[in-house]
Design a protein around this nucleic acid. Structure first.
Lengths: 221, 221
DNA sequence: ACTTGTTATTTGCAATTTGCTATTTGTGTG
DNA sequence: CACACAAATAGCAAATTGCAAATAACAAGT
């Protein structure tokens, strides 16, 4: 066997995204240990080959173990690697992004977790700035032709809420009536019995997704 | 320090794609060593932390070292991991896809390399079937809104050739005049002085890309 | 009960984009 | 010099999208 002696460090990092104030926000966690102890960073940890069937399940385990959260969408972004990204040595981190309805985050009430608008999440340790940027870019791209943004919302939502989720994910405003037409044609959602009463105006119809997982469309939203 | 004792195997695998007979084809290589010695598989190898600045450069090194090839497009697909994908133990492989003009492949003339239409590249060792499928899916998606397919062609090409490259990548036929309009509006290519003479018909104008790297569009092609 | 304010939802074109089908152009061939 | 053939262009018809006005439903104040 040649030079497979040195095996690099393998970790997972999760870019946990949620929607609040009509903006995409990242959930960060204060690091417990060195390096960068005390600083806000992505939720991450070592891959444990003896217990993790894959990096995907490792990411879910870390999310549950360190933040007490489980999510409906957890997708792999890409792997970041190199000798200088982590002072402990040459490492590779398989990055994931996860989507969480804000109410689930709020209900958790974990003091170590902190939510920040993506534009303000700068100066993070390691190469986490680049990982966050990559996650946002991927989500933006994917939002254009999939039901992804719906997973930033609770299971039941109104059309205006869904539109705002798409607008936040895409980073641009959408034409309301055209949006309704498209969503209707894509058969992405179905109405639920009840109605939501916004305090001071006409109540909106509640909808739910027709499919429990992210679906991709041939057309663009 | 907890359980970071076991460090997994880290490798890279490259899905090398080219265009021939109007179809996307994968270039595979006969494995020199066990496991699966002699079988056709993706071009891949160990990551060498001491010499590789990143997995990206590791992939380029492996491509150069094992196939003698350098490519203009080498993009990360995703990482495949688990305890059963490689008999040597728990491993993670960072997969890349690369695009190569067929003439560059043909010029190489390496007997260990074999080109197969993607539909026929089945039953590969490890989880390479899944990696190939993932690469094709990603390329198909990306072809819809980028200049990616142009990198399956030599630096100078005709519009009919470019359209056939898009058709092969997208897996569907395109309307010729609409395609020309779009490509024109996207300012993706520029004409070159000469003309190509197909044996028995009107010669086509030669074009080259205006940008040396893959560019993404807001609109779809 | 009635008016006002506010947001949801629908409707009806106008403007733009796309799909399709001729037409025209440039080259080799017989 | 007519013919075959593929490249390139041109001209609508059809489909999609953007915009703005009209309508609907509810809360709160008069």
């Amino acid at each position: 066997m040649a030079t497979e002696l040195i095996r690099p460090i393998l970790t997972v990092d999760v870019v946990l995204l949620t929607l609040h104030d009509d903006r995409i926000q990242v959930v960060l966690q204060a690091r417990e240990k060195a390096p960068h102890a005390g600083q806000l960073a992505l939720i991450g940890g070592y891959v444990h080959p003896e217990e993790d069937p894959s990096t995907q399940t490792a990411a879910a385990r870390v999310l549950r173990g360190k933040a007490g959260l489980s999510v409906r969408v957890l997708e792999q972004l890409m792997t970041f690697s190199g000798g200088s990204r982590d002072p402990r040595g040459w490492s590779a981190s398989v990055a994931y992004y996860a989507l969480l309805p804000h109410r689930d985050f709020a209900a958790r009430g974990d003091a170590s977790l902190r939510m920040l608008p993506v534009a303000e999440a700068k100066g993070l340790p390691f190469d986490h700035d680049a990982i966050v940027a990559g996650a946002i870019q991927r989500c933006r791209r994917r939002a254009a032709y999939s039901s992804l943004p719906a997973f930033l919302l609770p299971p039941e939502f109104t059309l205006p809420e869904l539109r705002r989720a798409y607008e936040a994910a895409l980073g641009r405003s959408l034409n309301d009536s055209a949006f309704r037409r498209k969503i209707d044609e894509l058969r992405m959602i179905e109405p639920v019995a009840g109605s939501l009463s916004k305090v001071t105006a006409r109540p909106a119809q509640l909808f739910r997704l027709t499919k429990a997982n992210v679906v991709e469309f041939d057309r663009t939203v």
